[in-house]
Write a protein that binds this DNA or RNA. Structure first.
Lengths: 166, 166
DNA sequence: TATTGTTATACTCTATAACTATA
DNA sequence: TATAGTTATAGAGTATAACAATA
């Protein structure tokens, strides 16, 4: 089927291990900051941030699910938590009554405001501080291409992410 | 204290978002592959892999905790699971009787062998396929520096990782 | 007293499957 | 029939605090 497995050289291993360790450490630190500053999990922050960037502060559940959460029920769970805290509202979509429109509230935006400065601080201190401008550009370029590739090419051998049931 | 928060430009945002999305998607896919091929979580795989690379296949709990798991109790939990499945053994350290020496078993090495090829396939397809050699080198270089920085500089504003209790 | 590790416990998160309602 | 979302439920993982044993 696919190209037979080959081992990696030290550069490839280095890139892989560094990617895993950096993202893991970064996420862990950010999670603590978000929890301390606004009592948000990382997923909850991502949902709020996406809503905050959307026109009207609204998204359908499906739009929120793509790229943030991997199961619909997981998204429902998180949306419930956010709704209970008054950070978002949920209402049936006007155009498609099957859908649910999630909207960020003023309180939700305030929470984002509370949380952003510390978030930025963490990123500056942990991620950007040791990097030159060209490094950041290289990261954005290379990882951007990897992301586009991942989005366009569902894994062949591993489990597909969003296919017709079977 | 620290430099006051400043916003990020689009390149910085791009690097950050791409890093998060790539690592998240990669980890998710790898996790499914590890689960399918050897019934391992990612953390369990990391522990086994580290043991497999250690001289004698042994590590102390503390050495395992650093860089893989964030709490001692979490490591104990995972070590128990691996021990119950016969993939590692645990025994009091000979030199320091407070310590526990964890050792990978032959069965543990077999599990690693079962899991490696698919793991490599996933990395090739998802991470390396769209990259030129120079891209991989750039990733290893830049992220390697970030990792070194993170290791050496415990976050100033966020919670420290391993400090004298307070 | 400080360090290593375990235990008890509680909580968060995620996923699967069954279900409802609309297109 | 297919899609959008919810619910019920179960399981995996993590963290905190209290604890025991050794340095």
């Amino acid at each position: 089927m696919a190209v037979p497995s080959r081992s990696f050289d030290s550069t490839e291993l280095g890139a892989y291990f560094a990617l895993i360790e950096v993202s893991s450490l970064l996420r862990h630190t950010v999670e603590q900051q978000l929890r301390a500053a606004g009592d948000l999990s990382y997923v909850q922050f991502q949902l709020l941030a996406r809503l905050g960037d959307s026109p009207g502060g609204s998204c359908r559940m499906t739009d929120l699910a793509d790229g943030v959460v991997y199961s619909r029920s997981g998204l429902t769970y998180q949306a419930q938590l956010l709704e209970q805290r008054g950070l978002v509202t949920r209402a049936p979509s006007t155009d498609d009554e099957r859908g649910t429109t999630v909207t960020i509230t003023e309180q939700g935006r305030n929470t984002l405001t509370d949380v952003f400065p510390g978030h930025i601080d963490v990123l500056n201190e942990l991620l950007f501080e040791p990097l030159a401008r060209t490094d950041v550009e290289a990261l954005a370029d290379v990882l951007g291409r990897v992301r586009d590739h991942m989005r366009s090419a569902p894994p062949r051998s591993a489990a597909p992410r969003r296919r017709k049931t079977s």
